[in-house]
Design a protein around this nucleic acid. Structure first.
Lengths: 221, 221
DNA sequence: AAAATTACGTTAAATAGGTTACAGTTACGC
DNA sequence: GCGTAACTGTAACCTATTTAACGTAATTTT
């Protein structure tokens, strides 16, 4: 399953960003500090002071946010060649947590280093703003999500994923879908069961496969 | 009711930004193009291509977003000295709509002009990224809002407003509160009625006044 | 000043989704 | 290789919120 050439973002309904749009960071990586993170390891966590931002070189990272009542939401999943933790460029604390889903390699750009980079390569501003704006869009899509019914929410999510990956295998379990949509696992289960009965999805060995992607498109739009 | 000296943002629970944090744009205004908008006039609308961004000099602007099913949400209310429409710096289309709540004066910075500004005053990058990151935080707060009960949602909203304005008069009607929280007007009405009976708020001539702000603080935190 | 639109108050009925509970399966760490 | 932890399937119940409906008050438009 190749996901290269495509940016993958969970939870928004217009998350497609072709690779070509993504600025090539390779020449700038020398300005950052290479770091390794093992699966399940935390890269940065909500509430702690941050310094600069991170570039994901290899691996997969899940961005989550915990609200005032302690509930956790998956905000998006970062794939290679994307930035994360941009929030703390502002010198403030992180308002999300990043956890490695797979062993990952990241480059950390501290404020100092980024300043230097800005001076030497001012064109970097464009890539940077582009990334941040894209992230805003993802957040906004997420907000709009909550006026939908639970069936629509899940449909939207799965539709995006199958679209992004150009693949009909869903890389999420019930819990993940619940966390992405803000529903309970039971509700997710109920919808999934109903869809299975209608032949819209297949469930093989606890993995979900989308059979009728058009059904999702109709539900959403 | 003086709101000067304070930035006002609807819908997030940590939206306080003192005026002093806001970069003074006065010296840069000459780079933008001054425009006037009458009450209810649209400054930019979702789906249309944008060019650059706007700075609100005088007035009040409401930012709304319409989702795939046609439902409208108020995202925030922009007060003077704030940026809006930053999304389209990217040359893409606007993903929100901005409507003047009062007669307003804005300065429009086209991409070309902003580029020029960046060259002549590179320090502007900081202000700019700060604003965008702040907006991201507001969006994120909004996402976390939807794990709360309807009473908590409204409490949070009113708490923020009364805190930001340092005033206990709520500048929103039932419909607005519904649109901000994603609830129906009926649900809003029910909560408000209940609060009125408990003496937490006053309703005079269809305007809401917060009597016991501490009640909100307890509900939320 | 009349007409039209928009906002509010209230109730009753319908329902979507959350909660709880528990048993069966699979995966993972030691 | 075994035990614990994490994930799934399912049912019964419950309640918070939405939908629908309608009269009244207020505001805006013409």
């Amino acid at each position: 399953m190749s996901i290269f050439g495509i940016q993958f973002q969970l939870g928004g309904y217009q998350m497609v960003t072709l690779y070509e749009h993504v600025f090539n960071w390779e020449p700038y990586l020398q300005f950052g500090k290479r770091q390794f993170f093992k699966r399940k390891q935390t890269i940065y966590s909500q509430g702690t002071p941050g310094d600069g931002f991170y570039f994901l070189h290899k691996g997969l990272v899940r961005i989550v946010s915990v609200n005032a009542t302690g509930k956790e939401r998956i905000l998006n999943i970062v794939i290679p060649n994307q930035l994360m933790g941009v929030q703390s460029l502002d010198q403030k604390e992180h308002f999300t947590t990043a956890i490695a889903v797979q062993d990952s390699i990241v480059y950390h750009f501290s404020n100092r280093k980024f300043k230097k980079l800005l001076q030497e390569r001012p064109e970097i501003v464009r890539v940077f703003s582009r990334t941040v704006i894209h992230k805003m869009k993802i957040l906004l899509d997420r907000i709009n999500l909550d006026t939908l019914t639970s069936e629509q929410k899940i449909a939207l999510l799965l539709h995006n994923i199958c679209y992004e990956f150009q693949n009909f295998e869903v890389p999420l379990n019930q819990q993940d879908i619940a966390s992405c949509t803000g529903l309970t696992r039971i509700s997710v289960y109920k919808v999934l069961k109903q869809w299975k009965e209608k032949g819209i999805i297949d469930i093989i060995n606890k993995k979900y496969y989308i059979k009728k992607p058009d059904f999702f498109r109709n539900l959403v739009n």
